[in-house]
Design a protein around this nucleic acid. Sequence first.
DNA 1: ACAAAATTGGACCTGCAAGTCCAAAACCCG
DNA 2: CGGGTTTTGGACTTGCAGGTCCAATTTTGT
Lengths: 201, 201
Amino acid sequence: MTRALTRKGEATRARIVAGAAAEIRERGVDEVRLEDVMAHTGASKGQLFHYFPDGKEELLLAVAQHEADQVLLDQEPMLSNLTSWPAWLAWRDRLIERYRAQGVKCPLNGLLGQTGRRAPGAQAIVTGLMWRWQNAIADGVRHMQSTGDISADVDADRAAAALLAGIQGGVLLLLSTGKTDHLEAALDLTIDSLRASSRTA
Amino acid sequence: MTRALTRKGEATRARIVAGAAAEIRERGVDEVRLEDVMAHTGASKGQLFHYFPDGKEELLLAVAQHEADQVLLDQEPMLSNLTSWPAWLAWRDRLIERYRAQGVKCPLNGLLGQTGRRAPGAQAIVTGLMWRWQNAIADGVRHMQSTGDISADVDADRAAAALLAGIQGGVLLLLSTGKTDHLEAALDLTIDSLRASSRTA
DNA sequence: ACAAAATTGGACCTGCAAGTCCAAAACCCG
DNA sequence: CGGGTTTTGGACTTGCAGGTCCAATTTTGT
């Protein structure tokens, strides 16, 4: 049913999604009109509705998925290799560097509020992203526990949840303050408290 | 210049802001039309533009301010009295209870994304809220340091920044998951790490 | 090469929500 | 009471962005 895209079709579709994503990152979801996407990607209105029959909502959903995947990809290979304290720090540095460069342009900020409430699918995308993210962190915590670098008393999932919350909040605060201070503080203090756990226990 | 509101005028204006705020909390910023506000508050279009000459944007700004003030008020008197561990826990419980009840209806969620990018004023409102919030927490940390319940080695502002980030992230995750798990984990682990600081130091 | 199917361009339609305008009513104050 | 001002109601205008439609063109498969 959905199998009707030629090579060229796939390419066009991908170009539209990527272009729309860039446009949204740059100017915010609710500032981007279909016409902007057309201008920016060189696509016609016919193309837009050919590849996204349900219009803007469907396009936004595709963009959300695209951006969600990117968020985790940008943390690799560090995120999947949290096997030593230097590795944790490398991941920490990558995160901060990445968000510092990105500044106010958070890809998912608007997508949560904008599509999140109305589109049930967008909610699922964000939830899925957070779930994968938290699991990757929890895996890292468990690995450190296996090597004795983190106390076995620590609840890995709970610690990962707290760390993820700190990251999300840090990014949110970056959006309004323009500074990465909160992100850094949350990461550093939470990670430090994990390190301390092995010494006190 | 702005001084031209009779008693009745003030009342009407306040009624519009409160009604619009409720409406937005309930259904999200971008789902609320001026007509919805009119219906919900019993105000006419003439009134809306009489009290908010710059239209929707100005109204949204007033709503944002109203909601921002409310966020801190809802944490009182706990937030201003973080002078003992039981007091911290009471504050923690109040926060969780409040957000659990509120669920997905975060007053400022959309206001950040929606007006945040375009209206420079909304940005300022949110920043101001975060600043006041963080300061209140930092004051609590400093008080606990003065009584020796928290190690003097702790950087109060940095700790407050991390805690605030955890809260914001926890709320954000509440919005997409519907669970308060992250908020609880972030609060508990961060506060526990502050408690631990006095014992290890 | 040719028919069927996918792709593309762009003119056109439509609905809606913000914003305008003005005249009627209520209100304030000497 | 009476003139000026604020407050109120609601009809009307306007612009625009999403969505529709279809005909022209290219691609695909045999």
